[in-house]
Design a protein around this nucleic acid. Structure first.
Lengths: 191, 191
DNA sequence: AAGACTATGTCAGTCGCTGACATCATGGTG
DNA sequence: CACCATGATGTCAGCGACTGACATAGTCTT
């Protein structure tokens, strides 16, 4: 496999995913990933800023979708518009459960990867807050709506990953955003 | 300075803090920190698992305080008990603004440190959720209350750090937890 | 065909971090 | 007091992530 084989980046992603799943993240070296992709360690670092980032390629798209959604929402700026944005994203962005689960298993097995995932979500929250401010919402309301919205998403996503009934992500998100709204008036224990 | 000078750990903390503040986190090597503390690089890693952790020593205490607070709260399990827990922690745990601000400047200047900070908060959220479940709250309510509570804390803490009026942390927390409760019924724009 | 441009390779080096083993202070025990 | 167990520190060697500098090989334009 000489130079100039196409799709270098996606070959690297796939190789990394396979190796992380097979041996785990920290028992995989970047050199191994590159080799499986028919490339060099140095080239890996030209495509991804670090060894973790390869698992999060494409997350900018989610980021942009959400921000665009909130910016152009018909709802007034607030949690509702954030909820609506995630609702749309649930339908348009996320890969099939099976793949998402495999990826999540890899992430859950490694603290460093969890840190990166949280960092991504935090940047999403910051961007959403800023979009809400653009639309005239004040602080701390904007920051709170964004952070709480992302919090609801985190819980929904986690439940999607572990749902034995394999319900769609949208369902979990609606449940969680509803739950968020009724936080102040707690339902009876066990709910 | 021979072996056996007392307070090795806190000397390392202080040296690290100074150097991170002077030159920034990634222009500081662990060897330099150790040297300033009169120790060796190897010894640094016996006291702290990694170069970032030295900035987060003591965070377990906050963690434990919050969990204990929620576990023994007189309120029913829910956001209110989480709010109460943070309220107490605000009074009992956090160092003076000046020091907190310096530390925060260091963290804000470095993505890797921000990741670690988020990871700590996430573990707090997980622990709080688990404490709420212990007390009989179901899922996803428990996870939501914990995550939303931590979200409110994040916003409150950030505002405390940047508050030009130097208001106490407790005030910001009360404001944010109130804001959280009224998320569903948005106040007029600009609030 | 020549030159510009870009993706990749090569190499050397820094630094975070770890395992293995040696060494030194401290606190008992006989 | 000599002796030893224990724990904190030092020393050394090594791996692997990541970077900068430079060389090389494809592609594209003209």
């Amino acid at each position: 496999m000489g130079r100039w084989e196409p799709n270098a980046q996606s070959r690297l992603r796939q190789a990394a995913m396979e190796l992380y799943a097979e041996r785990g993240f920290d028992r995989t070296t970047v050199a191994e990933i590159a080799e499986r992709a028919g490339l060099t360690e140095r080239t890996f670092f030209r495509h991804f800023t670090d060894k973790r980032e390869v698992l999060f390629a494409g997350s900018e798209r989610l980021h942009e979708m959400l921000v665009a959604s909130v910016a152009s929402s018909s709802e007034p700026p607030g949690v509702a518009s954030v909820a609506a944005a995630f609702d749309r994203a649930a339908a348009e962005y996320f890969p099939p459960v099976a793949y998402s689960r495999q990826r999540q298993r890899v992430i859950d097995a490694n603290p460093a990867l969890q840190e990166r995932e949280l960092a991504k979500l935090d940047r999403v929250a910051a961007a959403l807050a800023s979009a809400l401010r653009e639309r005239g919402l004040g602080d701390p309301a904007a920051a709170l709506a964004a952070e709480a919205g992302v919090a609801a998403f985190k819980v929904a996503f986690a439940r999607w990953m572990t749902d034995p009934a394999d319900g769609p992500l949208v369902d979990h998100m609606r449940e969680c955003f509803t739950g968020l709204r009724s936080l102040a008036a707690p339902a009876p224990a066990g709910s």
